[in-house]
Computed example of a mutant assay.
Amino acid sequence: MIKNNFSYSVSVDCVIFGYDETSLKVLLIKRGVDPYSDFWALPGDLVHPMENTEEAVKRVLKDLTGLNNIFTEQVKTFGDIGRHPLGRVFTISHYSLLKIDEYDLSPTNKNNSPSSYSLEAKWHNVNRIGELAFDHNKIFAACKEKLIKNAKTKPVGFELLPDQFTLSDLQNLYEAILEKKFDKRNFRKKINSMKLLIDTGKNQKSVSHRPAKLFRFDKEKYQRLKKVGFNFEI
Rank of each mutant, 00 (worst) to 15 (best):
G157K: 02
I2C: 07
K226I: 05
V57H: 06
F71M: 08
F6S: 10
G130Q: 10
T166K: 07
G18P: 00
I2W: 08
I29K: 00
P43L: 02
T91Q: 03
A121Y: 07
Y95P: 03
L46I: 11
E175Y: 05
A41F: 01
K149D: 11
M194T: 03
V126N: 11
L196S: 03
V26G: 02
L147E: 03
N111A: 13
L197E: 05
D218M: 12
R224T: 11
I100M: 15
S206W: 10
N186P: 00
A142K: 13
R59M: 09
F134D: 00
P35I: 04
F230V: 05
L170Y: 05
A56L: 08
N192A: 14
L61M: 11
T65R: 02
E175L: 07
N68C: 10
I70N: 01
C143N: 14
R31T: 02
E55W: 02
L28W: 00
N137S: 06
I191M: 12
V228E: 13
L225S: 01
K3S: 11
A142Y: 04
D163V: 14
G82R: 09
T22E: 14
F158L: 15
S96Q: 07
G44V: 00
K202S: 09
N4C: 05
K110L: 14
I92R: 02
E145F: 12
K149T: 11
L225K: 04
D169R: 07
L132T: 01
F230P: 00
C143I: 10
K99N: 10
L167A: 12
F215N: 04
G66V: 07
L119R: 11
I29P: 01
K202L: 15
I148W: 04
